[in-house]
Design a protein around this nucleic acid. Sequence first.
DNA 1: TGTTCTTACTTGTTATGACAAGATTGATAA
DNA 2: TTATCAATCTTGTCATAACAAGTAAGAACA
Lengths: 250, 250
Amino acid sequence: MEPKKETMLTLSPVPLYTQIREILRARIFDGTYKAHEQMPSESELMRSFEVSRITVRQALGDLQKQGLIFKIHGKGTYVSQPKAFQNLAKLQGFGEAMSSMGYETFSKVVNFRVLPADKTVAKKLDLAENEMVAEIRRVRYLNRSPISLDVSYLPRQIGERLIKEDLTNRDIFLILENDYGYALDQAELQIEAMLADESLGRLIQLEEGSPILRIERLTFTADNQPLDFEYLYYRGDAFQYRLRIERGRI
Amino acid sequence: MEPKKETMLTLSPVPLYTQIREILRARIFDGTYKAHEQMPSESELMRSFEVSRITVRQALGDLQKQGLIFKIHGKGTYVSQPKAFQNLAKLQGFGEAMSSMGYETFSKVVNFRVLPADKTVAKKLDLAENEMVAEIRRVRYLNRSPISLDVSYLPRQIGERLIKEDLTNRDIFLILENDYGYALDQAELQIEAMLADESLGRLIQLEEGSPILRIERLTFTADNQPLDFEYLYYRGDAFQYRLRIERGRI
DNA sequence: TGTTCTTACTTGTTATGACAAGATTGATAA
DNA sequence: TTATCAATCTTGTCATAACAAGTAAGAACA
């Protein structure tokens, strides 16, 4: 039986790639294509819509940017899954937040090094520039999928101690509090949206150009000393933050 | 004099478009191309790098996704400017936050309508589904550039009253408090990253696929009644949120 | 039964080409 | 001096084509 010919308005002012994108998007939302299900290949879509491959790729590229699909080189195109969230009002490590909500999570240290603090890190941690600090890079996993890259900067000795701990299964915050005796108190955050670049994309298995929730977090002890400065890069397609704030308070 | 030939490693395993992207990116960061300055055209880059137009477009497409450049159909490619931020711990309207920091800001109402609340809006505002609410859509400007789309839902009568006010220069929060006598107290937020779609992109003059900081905010009065439910879409390339949070508090 | 190789299918990269659509600039005419 | 038009330059859209690189499945061989 002949494959079904897709209906498109070739006389429409709407670009072909936009029409195709909207048709595919509607199919994702109406459940025709389900999360993690493989979508038709580029060749199949070319045949169905009777367009060139570049037109199909442009439509798919947009869906990918919107986080609705992902592609695996040589394998296929898949529908993305909906996202988790963390309550932001509470200063918590990722593991404690996720496990209290029933998600399976762990992290993998992908790099550890001791290096001279750059201007930003020195200023945040109230150290002299070029003073040695520890940098710990971890990829966080949620339900066995990578969800974020976490780059932490701490004073050298603390970092060198931490790297010997089981950072796969334990949060740095809990180790600092329970094992090392620091009273963590407050944190300053700044939050913005960015796009994944190639190296980040490689680490958390996300295509370049995907939306990223980027957070800088500086955590203080109870005596107001900065202790832990982090860059957190969460994939925007799978994660959101929530919080409750008040009016009139600083 | 002959245009300078760009150096590239044609025998490198790194794709040509990636090399070009990194060269251009370095030039943005080192100041060779400055914010709002027009970059070389696609044709000029084709000639300089001796590659096809699609290779150049792919490199530029990536820089665009990273928010470093923007394109104007028929005009050219420009370097983006660095971003502003809002302190998130304080529940403020955009105008009051930005004007207290010396930015020039205003908003434009792009749509107002009264419509039946959908499930989400009804639930957030503690109304019956299909009860009529007011929807106010505004584009916010910072230093005369569009920076966000704000879609507010309020009970019908309040919305119908508000739309008669000068929403170009005044914040809805201040009108609710000072003119209408509501004591705004707290808000719940959820924050995530997404990519701009075509319609949003058109409203805030951003290319599709650019990173967006998307925030849902539900504001309550002092007697804990939900009053104002908003979707806020901030361009990620020009804006970030900051806040200070505490450990151990809910 | 396990391993290796080949084939086929998938997405990634790059090229050439053409025309559409928007913006700008300069020339011309009123 | 102003308005209009044409030419040129810019990005947007779409086509055809070829080869690279990754994955999977099935066949063949040990």
